[in-house]
Design a protein around this nucleic acid. Structure first.
Lengths: 370, 370
DNA sequence: CTCCAGAATGTAAGCGCATACAGTTGGGGA
DNA sequence: TCCCCAACTGTATGCGCTTACATTCTGGAG
């Protein structure tokens, strides 16, 4: 039982393959009666057009690509296919027994926006998440299958990027604008962190604050730190005098940092963290240790992930529009596909500072304890 | 500047296109010296093979598909491409000011597992999320692009499923096993809910419990309710005497249900909810109203989503392995592709009851208040 | 009834690659 | 030195569809 082709449909409907193709691509070019006859044959034969053939003939695939890198846990699960395991284990789940999935919530949201926007414009979406040090194969593979691809900044070496961009347009997501020629969408990291820090400095009159940063090679973190520095300087303080801790964007790592800090005895008035995960890691350690947040220490994050809204205290943070980031990336790509020669696109999306209890004091009642 | 093809590479390297193809597909069939010459040309020309052409010639695309349906909020965001908006809005974010994204966490996790497993076997992954009542176009489109696709049960009408499955294998995810011939992966809904309910009945000696169900046409909810019924019957109670409320799997809807219940004055000893979202909706209303959980009312959910682990009290639930579900779906598909004539696959994944404070009392200290 | 301009449909040429099969080359053995 | 086989490499075909161009219909004007 081979899959039906245009030829099968054409024969079944008594028309030529060109007419079958027209019925599917430009129905208005075909007389209504023939169209219905062809459509009936399509149904009868279970015909589904081959995207490979169409893509080859039309010189476009109708697919957009999205590539991210991730440090997912390498959990090798069962390989069994014919599992029939209806067993139920009952466990008493003690709080915080383990780190939950360290997930790329970032990815989830960007993906959601990308998926939505792509289909809205008649394109399918292909996704790839690289987990090893060598993204070349996956990126190349995707590049051969799509009309354009969006790539998380920093997840692919420049030479590979240059290679694939000779075939299809490439849009960079996040990170700073580089000197290259790629289109680029990002959020206002610097401005957001500057606004948040300025708020802390002016409203709370702080002078004693510490920046908790991400990986040294993270361009996003670099921008955020720069925003922090600018705010501090504007307040007449010397940024060089303020300590910087490294939490590597990881909740677990941030806990370690917090413990060290507590052990050392030196706790600042405010911990300005480069992302929410690290801020949550701080809370994980400080709160049980009896440190009051925000009375003793103010803690802030960056990203606006869900978990920061569910913590106690809820996390003051800078929300970045990740779903919109995905959409903007797709739109930039489509624009580039349509106008290959237009100048490089640079989209910069606005952010929003969300003041919550981890910095503003217990002014706002918890929903659960009215 | 057209994209390079095999012909360009062949000419540049002074070989035939067959050799170029071999270098890329089966490197060992080519002498090392020739191989390196070809590879150099590939780099020099920025050659990336066209998956369309390859798919057509090889009669397989190397892509697997995943289709879900969702009731996403139809948020039409900005259409602008050349956004340069570095503005920063500062808002005081009062608690619970709105329902957060009602997201398909389910989708996120299944997707993650699918993506991982597909690439692990050398396949790319294409995703589609249908949001309107007519999935035919998107499903057909995907079907034409892949070697097999996984579909969330109930998201695609049978006739469409039958149509596309004449071309490629289709695997159903979740839902009950139907009488059809498709491969199917799901979790032990019935057994999980039965185990949880049995635990509640035996440990707490309850007789007064209410089931809060999802949409009437949800096969998953039907299974869960059946598990509830079986446990109740096994305890010698009459399930028909126990009320069933409808929360439609929605947190907001569940709140409405809870409010009605409170207004009516009749509050049972336990609320057994068909999913976590509804259970959280219950908490949203009960806790602020002064109802103690679990002392006055026990509340349980189903799914094991992150938010249920972050609520106060933390939610007792049945965790289903959604990531693994995605992986199992991909594996089933690959198996079917490899052995088209094997009997239908039915994978049933185990679940885990997680006992937490919403049913077990304050025995376990909160991490935040040691 | 004849003609002719559209409308409708058919014909045929690729799109870029994989691969069966044919042809070539390089050595080792006779 | 010649022959023969294995290792390489080249030739040619077709995968299923789109589309420019050619051909055939249609139906209203003349």
């Amino acid at each position: 039982m081979k899959a039906a082709t245009v030829y099968d449909v054409a024969a079944h409907a008594g028309v030529s393959i060109a007419t079958v193709s027209r019925v599917l691509r430009r129905p208005d070019d075909v007389r209504a009666s023939t169209r219905q006859r062809v459509l009936a044959s399509v149904l009868a034969l279970g015909y589904v057009p081959s995207a490979s053939a169409r893509g080859l003939a039309a010189r476009r695939t109708g697919v957009l690509g999205l590539y991210f890198s991730s440090v997912d846990d390498e959990d090798e699960q069962s390989e069994a296919i014919f599992v029939q395991d209806t067993s139920v284990e009952i466990v008493v789940d003690v709080p915080d027994s383990r780190e939950v999935r360290p997930p790329n919530l970032y990815f989830d949201e960007v993906l959601r926006g990308s998926e939505r926007e792509a289909w809205r414009h008649g394109f399918a979406l292909m996704v790839g998440v690289g987990r090893d040090a060598n993204p070349a194969d996956m990126v190349n593979d995707i590049a051969g299958r799509v009309d354009g691809m969006a790539v998380l900044a920093g997840s692919v070496p420049d030479d590979i990027l240059d290679h694939v961009s000779r075939r299809i347009p490439v849009v960079l997501i996040a990170g700073p604008r580089r000197g290259d020629h790629h289109d680029h969408v990002s959020v206002s990291n610097l401005e957001g962190m500057r606004a948040l820090t300025t708020h802390l400095l002016s409203r709370h009159g702080l002078t004693d604050l510490v920046y908790v940063g991400g990986p040294a090679d993270s361009p996003d973190d670099a921008e955020r730190y720069q925003g922090f520095v600018e705010a501090v300087e504007a307040a007449g303080l010397d940024p060089a005098a303020l300590p910087v801790l490294r939490g590597e964007f990881s909740r677990v790592r941030a806990r370690g940092v917090a413990e060290t800090m507590l052990a050392t005895g030196r706790v600042p008035r405010a911990l300005v963290c480069g992302n929410d995960q690290m801020a949550l890691g701080m809370l994980d350690v400080l709160i049980p240790a009896g440190v009051r947040v925000p009375e003793d220490v103010i803690v802030t994050g960056f990203d606006g992930i869900e978990a920061g809204r569910l913590s106690r205290p809820r996390l003051t943070t800078v929300h970045q529009p990740m779903v919109e980031l995905g959409r903007a990336a797709m739109r930039a790509m489509l624009s580039r596909i349509e106008h290959p020669d237009q100048p490089p696109i640079t989209a910069r999306l606005p952010v929003k500072v969300l003041l919550r209890e981890s910095s503003e004091g217990p002014a706002h009642p918890s929903p659960a304890r009215p």
